[in-house]
Amino acid sequence: DLLKDLQQEFGSGIIFITHDLGVIADMADDIMVMYAGGAVERGSVETVLHAPEHPYTWGLLNSMPRLDSDPSIALTPIPGAPPSLLSPPSGCRFHPRCPFQDRVEGNRCVTERPLLGEAESACHLTPAQKRDIFVDEIKPRLG
Rank of each mutant, 00 (worst) to 15 (best):
V110A: 12
T47Y: 10
P127I: 15
P96L: 02
H124T: 02
S69E: 15
P83G: 01
A122N: 00
T76E: 04
P55N: 02
S63K: 01
D20M: 11
I14C: 12
D20G: 12
C92M: 05
G91R: 06
K130S: 10
H124P: 05
I17Q: 01
H19G: 06
A28H: 05
A128N: 09
K4Y: 15
M64I: 02
P65R: 15
I14T: 09
R113W: 11
S84K: 04
V33S: 07
I14Q: 08
S44L: 08
G91P: 14
Q8R: 14
K130H: 01
F100H: 05
C92P: 08
V104K: 05
E120H: 14
L85M: 12
L125P: 05
C109I: 07
A51L: 02
I14N: 04
F134V: 13
D102M: 11
C123H: 03
Y56M: 04
P52C: 00
P71C: 07
V23H: 08
A81I: 15
L3Y: 13
E112D: 12
D1S: 15
L61R: 01
D68F: 07
G38A: 15
G38V: 10
E41F: 07
L125D: 00
K139F: 11
R66W: 00
L2R: 14
M27L: 14
A122G: 05
G80S: 07
R97P: 05
D70M: 10
G43S: 02
R93Y: 06
D136W: 15
L21V: 02
S44P: 04
S72Y: 15
H50E: 10
I73Q: 05
G37C: 06
A51R: 08
C123W: 07
P55D: 05
E112K: 13
L116Q: 02
E137R: 03
S87P: 12
F134E: 04
E105S: 14
D70L: 08
C98K: 03
P114M: 04
C98I: 13
L6C: 07
R42W: 10
D68G: 09
Q7L: 08
T111R: 03
P83W: 00
H50R: 14
E120F: 12
S63F: 04
Q7D: 07
P52L: 01
Y35D: 09
T111H: 04
P88L: 01
W58S: 00
L67M: 13
L60A: 03
S12E: 07
V45R: 08
L125Q: 02
P88S: 13
G80I: 03
E41M: 00
A51P: 13
D102L: 10
S69G: 14
D102R: 07
W58Y: 06
Q8S: 13
P65Q: 15
A25M: 09
S90T: 14
D70E: 12
G43D: 06
I133G: 03
P99N: 14
G143V: 13
P82Y: 01
D102I: 09
Q101H: 07
L116I: 06
